[in-house]
Design a protein around this nucleic acid. Structure first.
Length: 218
DNA sequence: GACCAGGCACATC
DNA sequence: GATGTGCATGGT
């Protein structure tokens, strides 16, 4: 199993190359993007991010002073805007009150403590927390998303009842503990999911085709 | 017009 | 602790 997971990574990287994630210019921007992209197409997130950038709202102090109503309108294209507005404002508030407005202080926490901290924030679940750990914190944690689960099920690397942590540990344990590798693998899985696993469940043309022992429909 | 997208919180059993 | 439901826009 570990070998297959490593070989699948090699195949994906050979096909598509490095994905250069996360597409953000600061840790704060990355964290906002992580919230906005929850169950949402990235193209919609880009529209919301463009609105925020246009109003200089990818900045901590600007966001602090901005009303909920205003943020809601800016992020509207990303969907779930009522909830996501609460999540973003809550995040800003926590960073102000508990970390002295300093992302450096937040990211000074060791990885397990930081993960627990992030998970305690409203709107930050396992995937978003791990995305922040990996892409903003540069910690070697493997991000599991819907594509990762779908792919792993289809290749029969896991069974139905495998939870988030089991899936994350499967990948992390099958690979060198390397931030760059985890970074690229997750991004490549997303690329795979967008281009193959959904629209072509028979997996024709999929870079991982040869790893399927038999056709599996999920 | 259905279906889906780089999830999560909350209610209920 | 497992399962169900609401959240919302924009592309295919």
């Amino acid at each position: 199993m570990p070998e297959v997971i490593q070989e699948a990574y090699n195949a994906l990287l050979a096909r598509w190359g490095r994905q250069q994630w996360w597409p953000a210019q600061s840790r704060l921007e990355m964290m906002i993007g992580a919230i906005l992209t929850q169950n949402t197409a990235w193209s919609n997130v880009e529209k919301a991010m463009a609105n925020l950038r246009e109003h200089d709202a990818l900045d901590f102090h600007t966001l602090e002073k901005t009303s909920a109503r205003q943020i809601r309108e800016w992020i509207r294209p990303a969907g779930y805007f009522n909830q996501k507005t609460i999540y973003i404002r809550n995040m800003i508030q926590v960073i102000r009150e508990r970390f002295d407005e300093s992302l450096d202080r937040l990211f000074a926490l060791d990885t397990p403590t930081l993960r627990t901290e992030l998970l305690s924030w409203k709107g930050i679940g396992p995937e978003t927390a791990d995305s922040i750990l990996l892409y903003a914190g540069e910690r070697p944690v493997f991000v599991v998303d819907a594509y990762t689960r779908r792919m792993s099920l289809r290749h029969e690397w896991i069974d139905e009842n495998a939870g988030y942590d089991a899936l994350s540990e499967l990948f992390a344990g099958s690979l060198p503990t390397d931030v760059q590798c985890f970074n690229e693998y997750h991004a490549l899985i997303v690329k795979l999911g967008k281009t193959h696993c959904k629209t072509r469940p028979e997996c024709s043309g999929c870079p991982l085709e040869k790893f399927l022992s038999r056709p599996v429909s999920v």
